[in-house]
Nucleic acid binder design. Structure first.
Lengths: 341, 341
DNA sequence: GACCTCAGCGCAAACGTTTGTCCATAATCT
DNA sequence: AGATTATGGACAAACGTTTGCGCTGAGGTC
């Protein structure tokens, strides 16, 4: 416990103040407090360390960064943390980073290109050692600018051509959902397609549509509604789908939150989720299984993606060769489709 | 666009390098780039600013902090961001802070007292101007230590006696839930009580139990199960409640996520949520309304709590007098209780 | 025309670290 | 015993900003 046994120094406790107390030079204190105290006697190290602890010393991050040029910080950009999928990835990132001696600082860009730029500026001016981007979009041209800064980065969750990324195989995920519905006999289906500028939205939708097309049941464009990635967007998109002249028997939603919105719309249309309208989500958040009607969902290993993105970034920082990874999705079938015999 | 018209300077662009280009002193550049450029000619300001922009200058946060002692950063501590309620609060915090010219840095403490301390150390060594704590616990003694650091802070979501906090009136929220169930004729109910060391858990539960007791139906201890705040914890607690010799007709869950876990357990026990087992949640996340069985929930203004906590903290920073706030909760009745006639 | 004012800018110190270099003392070797 | 080598520590510079102060010269006042 940093008790104030040494009331003489009231101001902020710095290396200099510790040095004054210990009667040594500030550089000695610095070395004594460093991880490998070279060139300082063992008992001096001990004496200084306990003194520092007693005084409640905390290394000043700003000064440290200024001097060394390194922050041991990695910046993370996500669309929004209220999306549990992204929050889970960030959780994986933060845990792994912490374990490896790094800190993270996260910013929400709301899928807004302007905000993306300003958040990036912020992180760069904080001199992050590297970046993990969870919000990459095909309609933004941040990448060339980013590469000019020389700050290493990896993408997570969403891909972009030519960039290192850690994602799930979203094409395959879309296919899995489609095959599942096809096996259950669905021929006419709707899609809540998410944001086409995000690779998640685009690829999950494409994998899904391609599979239905190959099976002989191409999905007309009016059955595919773009949306955001949230409950409200799913709800609104589903309302449009349910108003179509020929109602589909199943709806594939781009993620679990939009799927819940779909469920709400289906319910309010007087239909039973599962028996009268099959619903498939994506990500398999832990709440999917517990919903009153268990939600069939394509599981993607979110925490693992977070971990992997940190490891990849750190490999880059150490000059290692790295490659993109696409993790394998798995379909978890539940009542929201299985009760649709 | 920061085009590299000036290839001469390849290194990082600093005030000094701009000064060299412009043929002025570094201090002039500093002033020209500051918000109110005093003592610099208007045309010099203009010239330097465009030059800085062309070179892609970004103020070095570390040096700025080191010199000024201020960071315009506020640190935020939350149990975990995968909890949508906390993520929403953080979203409110971050948006408001950004709007007011502050940045936020968040850390997850997982309701772990050890982690709390180390995260706090981290934020303090980063010299945050103030702190917003969303993870305060009655079983941790961080407060005295924190007060010694002189860094201003406010609590959000959870209260602690004697500290400035922005919360909802959780006692009242618990009462609202109880009154609602009493009006519907429920006499024997279970409670998924959350973490008793968090004021949210303790007070929602207390308000709920007190109201039932006053109505003549005290809730026995074995019908009140402590839990965490997540889906899995809700599920496990509900499983225990459902195994009780005399099964209750309703379950009050400490938040919406645990309520979803309760719904899963109820469903798997072969009961219909709503008609056979009423369920009440807390927070009214936007997904509550859209669930296959709409979840009755006590709405708490999460985003507003976030905003208010920032304003309060900034008021403290400006030396203003501030007071704790308890926002009013509202019960949103839906199918998970209304279909339980 | 001498004096003052003040705008515009340069000078230098300081913030708290880290780290290469150097010096004194003590220990080791021949 | 003298020369050499570790060893423990001091010294000082540097990282990029900000900011109080001082200097110069142009314009205004009497």
């Amino acid at each position: 416990m940093p008790v104030s046994k040494h009331p003489s120094l009231t101001g902020p406790v710095t290396l200099a103040s510790i040095a004054a107390h210990a009667g040594v030079h500030v550089s000695t204190v610095s070395r004594a407090l460093s991880a490998q105290p070279d060139g300082v006697g063992p008992e001096t190290v001990e004496r200084i360390r306990t003194l520092a602890h007693e005084l409640g010393y905390r290394r000043d991050a700003a000064a440290h960064t200024l001097r060394t040029g390194r922050t041991r910080m990695i910046g993370v950009l996500v669309p929004r943390l209220t999306d549990v999928a992204l929050a889970t990835i960030y959780d994986g990132i933060d845990q792994t980073a912490t374990r490896l001696g790094y800190n993270t600082v996260v910013a929400n860009t709301r899928d807004d290109v302007e905000l993306q730029r300003s958040c990036l500026d912020l992180l760069l001016s904080r001199r992050v050692d590297g970046l993990i981007l969870g919000d990459s979009r095909t309609d933004s041209n941040l990448m060339p600018e980013l590469q000019r800064t020389q700050v290493p980065f990896v993408l997570v969750m969403r891909r972009l051509p030519g960039q290192i990324s850690i994602t799930t195989d979203d094409l395959e995920g879309g296919r899995l959902a489609a095959k599942h519905l096809l096996e259950l006999g669905h021929k006419r289906v709707g899609v809540v397609a998410g944001d086409p500028s995000a690779s998640t939205g685009a690829e999950r939708t494409r994998g899904f549509r391609d599979t239905f097309a190959k099976a002989g049941f191409p999905i007309p464009d009016e059955y595919v509604i773009d949306s955001d990635f949230h409950v409200g967007g799913g709800r609104r998109a589903a309302e449009r789908i349910l108003r179509l002249p020929v109602r589909p028997s199943a709806i594939f939603a781009i993620n679990d939150f939009t799927a819940i919105g779909v469920m709400g719309a289906v319910r309010d249309a007087g239909l039973q989720v599962g028996s009268e309208m099959a619903v498939v989500g994506y990500n398999d958040l832990d709440l999917a299984e517990q919903l009153p009607v268990g939600l069939t969902s394509v599981r993607s290993p979110l925490t693992e993606m977070g971990e992997l993105s940190v490891h990849t970034l750190l490999d880059i920082l150490q000059g290692k060769e790295v490659r993109s990874r696409r993790l394998r999705p798995v379909l978890m079938a539940r009542a929201s489709t299985l009760n649709s015999r």
